[in-house]
Amino acid sequence: MDLISEVIRTVRVGAAQARLIRQDAPGVRFPAFAGSGFHIVLHGVCWLVGDGDPVFLRPGDIVLTTAGGAHGLSETPCDLADLPLIEMGDLPPNPGPASFEFLCGNYRLDHARTPRYLRTLPGLIAVSPDEERHPETRAVISLLAAHVTKPQPGSAATLRALLDLVLVHVLRQWHEQNTTETWPEVAHPGVAAALREIHENPHHPWTVGRLSEAAGMPRAAFSRLFTAEVGEAPMTYLTGWRLSRAAQLLRETDASLARIAPQVGYSTEFALSAAFRREYGVSPGRFRSAAAGRAADT
Rank of each mutant, 00 (worst) to 15 (best):
R116T: 09
L225H: 07
F270D: 11
E269R: 11
E185Q: 14
E87G: 13
R138Y: 06
R242W: 09
A70R: 09
A161Q: 12
G154C: 03
F276A: 01
A296G: 15
V166A: 05
R113S: 11
A255T: 09
E213F: 04
Y280F: 10
P151K: 06
T182A: 15
G105Y: 00
P54W: 03
P59T: 04
R160S: 14
V45Q: 15
N106Y: 05
S5Y: 06
S155V: 00
N178C: 05
E87W: 03
T253C: 07
E200W: 06
D51F: 02
E181S: 13
V11R: 03
F38T: 04
L64Q: 03
R242T: 02
T253H: 06
P97Y: 05
N94T: 14
V170L: 04
D51M: 02
S244R: 12
E200P: 02
P284C: 08
C46K: 01
L167M: 13
S155M: 08
S142D: 14
V230T: 11
P95N: 09
L121R: 03
E185S: 13
S74C: 06
G37W: 01
G50A: 10
V170D: 00
E269Q: 12
D254Y: 07
L165V: 00
A156Y: 00
A25G: 11
V55H: 00
R210H: 12
T149G: 11
L171Q: 02
A192G: 12
L20E: 10
L171C: 02
P184R: 08
E213Q: 14
L124S: 09
G265K: 01
T268Q: 05
L238R: 02
R210L: 14
T76G: 06
P234D: 05
L3Q: 12
L109A: 03
G35L: 01
G105Q: 01
P135Q: 09
A81P: 01
A194R: 04
E75Q: 09
S244M: 09
E229T: 08
G190W: 04
M217A: 10
D90Y: 12
D90E: 15
P54V: 04
V170F: 00
R58W: 08
E87Q: 15
I4D: 02
T180R: 10
P84S: 11
A290W: 10
V55I: 15
L42A: 07
P234M: 00
R210D: 08
L163D: 01
I260W: 00
P129V: 04
L118H: 02
R116W: 06
T179L: 13
P202Q: 05
A290F: 10
R210E: 13
S128R: 13
V28Q: 07
I4K: 04
P122Q: 08
T114K: 02
E101P: 01
R259Y: 08
L73T: 04
G69D: 14
W47I: 01
Q173G: 02
G37D: 03
Q23C: 11
A67F: 11
Y280N: 15
E232D: 10
H71W: 05
T65S: 14
R160K: 10
G27T: 04
F56H: 13
R245H: 07
G123S: 12
